[in-house]
Design a binder for these strands. Sequence first.
DNA 1: CCCGGAACCTGAAGGC
DNA 2: TGCCTTCAGGTTCCGG
Length: 280
Amino acid sequence: MPELPEVETIKNDLRPELKGRRFTSVSILWPRMVLSGSPELLGEQLIGQHIREVARRGKYLVFRLASGQALVLHMRMTGSLLLRSASESSPDERRYVTAVFGLDSGQELLFCDRRKLGTVALVDSEAGLDRKLGPEPLDRAFTTQKLQGLLAKRKAPIKAILCDQDVIAGIGNMYADEALFSARIHPLRPANSLSHNEIDKLRNAIIVVLRKGIRNAGASFSDYRRPSGNRGSQQNAFQVAHRGGETCSVCATPIVRIPVRNRGTYYCPKCQSDATCSGS
DNA sequence: CCCGGAACCTGAAGGC
DNA sequence: TGCCTTCAGGTTCCGG
């Protein structure tokens, strides 16, 4: 489940390898992953193009091309990117490959995706991404005041709002739970019920939790791998995410799992008091 | 506009 | 052992 820290790690790993490289071949094994036109057209337009920059916006990985176009990839839940010398990938790695991008370095970029939900699109501009995504939580512009504005008038559970890409770009199920635990806020609290102090704590928690995730190269609970094939280590550092039944590191109360918008949500019932409490 | 639920996707895991 | 059900969660769509 690549969220912001996972995609950021992929970007950081790929950038030095791919910057300045040229696409020499494109092979789409799962046609439905291509959102822009046909797989054939994607290949036609991509082959020969140089990669000017590797970037990230929210959970999207963006290859900025010399032509001004951009190749935009999304891993969804089970997607990963492996960078391998041509034909050096193992059968295990090949098993779920949905696309192969050949490069003039002799390397191959493999899009691996067990559930085939990942997507790729060649776009003329990144403006479409900016239109549909909220602010980057690690930008300076993501202030407490900004977050307060985003949460105002939203009465849905704060957990659901944090995962809404229109509100903030890049936070998903795992890091939302971690940020709420760190800020000691119950996941079911209506977003507009948070006090200014709580919003301030939440903003700081979001930033700290995401930065820690990046420092640990992301969380490899299931399919996520770095382009080298290595795992991240953030899964070992989570306080509550995917830790149902284990004891809270602060108060030893068992971590509870509840559905919020049909998503598994982990929290400490003592540290994150209750949903009706309006905080201090 | 806002909210919640369903659908999409398919392998893994667990029950019997 | 094997069949069946349930689960996973990012995004998109739809109805209220």
